[in-house]
């Protein structure tokens, strides 16, 4: 009995400890970062290696890198997910091989993606240090997440839909476009949002692919510094850059929080709609 009480106490203590630690981390960033944030900080260019000025070009570069990564990865990921769920029910060797490759891809450390991106996109394909190289590298990184969530979404659609479509003589392509994909859309979008979050948080894969340049990029072939690299550079390589790094960290966290909130809101919204439409069918 005593053991039971002691264990309960310990587990509550651990939960409190974890909560307090993480609230401290967040509070530290918010308190130190908030005083630095102003309209100017978001709309000006950095000067004096980032000690003064704002982060406007860095936000633009980050957005471009993430946008490219998702635009490249989303169609590939969706196609692979459709193949794995709709056209490989009998577990073909090819499907097994693709799944195995995805497991390995999901476990590649981000710095190794950085090495690969530098060797393949920057040097072999001659893209140099550019936003495009960074976007392509991140696309490889987020593919497993996009595919996993899309596969889960498609597997969760009821088989009745597939049988009814087949009974009506509709081609599988039509059934996919008009029935299965719309039903699985919430999961697919949730996966996209997760992927955006992952891409925005990434640093190590970008150092040797998209580079350090903090000017406003003219095109995707220019080097561009992401927000996470900006934080790293300010805190490690720029003496006296800590306060601006706090502000950049706050901006990054707020962006991630907004993305998180959107995905939660969407999930709730879709769940509600689905329940209603099911009731109407009944």
């Amino acid at each position: 009995m005593l053991k039971n009480k002691l264990a309960t106490l310990l587990i509550y203590l651990v939960a409190v400890l974890i909560t307090v630690t993480f609230i401290c981390i967040l509070a530290d960033i918010i308190i130190h970062g908030f005083s630095q944030i102003s309209w100017g900080y978001l709309t000006e260019s950095p000067s004096d290696a980032g000690r003064a000025g704002g982060i406007a070009p860095i936000i633009v570069s980050t957005a471009l890198i993430v946008f490219l990564a998702i635009i490249i990865a989303a169609p590939l990921g969706l196609a692979t997910a459709i193949l794995l769920t709709e056209f490989a029910q009998q577990k073909t060797i090819f499907a097994g091989f693709v799944e195995r490759c995805l497991d390995v891809l999901a476990s590649v450390p981000s710095i190794v993606f950085g090495l690969f991106g530098n060797a393949f996109f920057s040097l072999y394909l001659g893209l140099g240090f550019s936003i495009l190289s960074g976007g392509l590298t991140l696309a490889c990184m987020v593919l497993p997440i996009l595919i996993r969530t899309a596969v889960e979404g498609l597997r969760a659609t009821p088989d009745d839909y597939r049988f009814s479509a087949a009974a009506l003589g509709i081609t599988r392509t039509t059934a996919l476009v008009h029935l299965l994909l719309p039903t699985a859309m919430p999961a697919i979008v949730a996966g996209l949002i997760l992927g955006i979050g992952r891409a925005m948080a990434e640093t190590a894969a970008l150092i040797f692919t998209s580079g350090y340049v903090d000017r406003m990029p003219d095109s995707v072939f220019d080097s561009g510094r992401s927000l996470s690299i900006h934080i790293y550079d300010l805190s490690m390589n720029v003496a006296g850059g800590d306060s601006k790094a706090h502000a950049a960290a706050l901006v990054l966290i707020v962006m991630l929080l907004i993305i998180n909130a959107i995905s939660m809101g969407l999930a709730k919204h879709w769940q509600k709609n689905r329940i209603i439409s099911n009731e109407i069918i009944i």
Binding site: F87, V98, L105, F116, F120
Partner: peptide, 26 residues
Amino acid sequence: DQHLVVGLRLCALLVASIVLLVFLFL
């Protein structure tokens, strides 16, 4: 559907080849 499957296979092959490319370049 057959056209679709061919397209999907190509995409999946491309995705799978990324892992091989990573190892190849390392």
